[in-house]
Design a protein around this nucleic acid. Structure first.
Lengths: 131, 131
DNA sequence: ATTAATGCAAAATCTTTGCACTTTC
DNA sequence: GAAAGTGCAAAGATTTTGCATTAAT
């Protein structure tokens, strides 16, 4: 069992009650992909009531402090991934679910590092499947 | 100079005045990337006034009829690409501009074709650069 | 005590929809 | 004349913001 308070402090964030509750949901088990809405309703379902504004606030601040990674899949929603290591995604179009692809499973040649003098900040790959 | 009316009819679409004006902007020169808003304001700037609702309508119907391809870059906006062939993208974070990457310029190994029995419908790659 | 976070409602964006009017076939 | 497209304003959906209250250091 990880120490969530320590994790938040290490990221430079105050361990408030709401952040700890959200962290407990996000970081206690295996990696997951959430939207603001899915997180809000999952927490509500288990009796944890945190305002949607705070959910957004926490997701954004966790992302900017490296605890989450935001993924662009669909222009209508933002997904957040608890796996912050480099990796790619399968996206199941019918269920709107994501699945991680380990970076070693997919090789890119040549791996770009610069473009027009600018550094590559990330490489986002989404493989959409019709299921 | 391409025949836009023919292009629309070939896609199964009626060549209305608005669709022809939008086609003339999108398909007369080289490939481009637009958002509903950028298209609306560029047309307005050149004296072509088409309601935003129709812009959205036309972008969506062009996309569903294969004349455009939608790209997910940013959850806050939808981009539409006049290049409908398979290809990837650079994304310039500061300017929010896209640049095409020819499919031969980037090799993926192994190229996935199926996942859990489902067909791969598309592979979206976005290489973000800090410029 | 100071500084930061929360929660609510309101506002801001982007996109879609309903419906009367107009255009295309 | 029937069917489809357009335009407006209104409604939806997602996300952000302003501000008073509450909590953390």
């Amino acid at each position: 069992m990880i120490n969530l308070e320590k994790k938040l402090r290490a990221a430079g964030l105050r361990p408030t009650k709401q952040r700890l509750l959200i962290s407990n949901y996000l970081f206690s088990g295996s990696h997951m992909h959430v939207t603001a809405d899915s997180l809000y309703s999952e927490l509500s379902k288990s009796g944890v009531n945190i305002s949607l504004a705070t959910i957004y606030n926490v997701l954004n601040i966790f992302t900017s402090h490296g605890l989450l990674r935001e993924i662009s899949i669909d222009s209508s929603r933002s997904y957040f991934d608890t796996n912050t290591k480099k990796h790619y995604h399968y996206y199941y179009e019918k269920t709107a679910k994501l699945e991680d692809i380990d970076i070693e499973k997919l090789q890119i040649n040549p791996l770009p590092e610069k473009r027009n003098g600018f550094d590559v900040s990330s490489i986002d790959i989404v493989i959409r499947v019709n299921g």
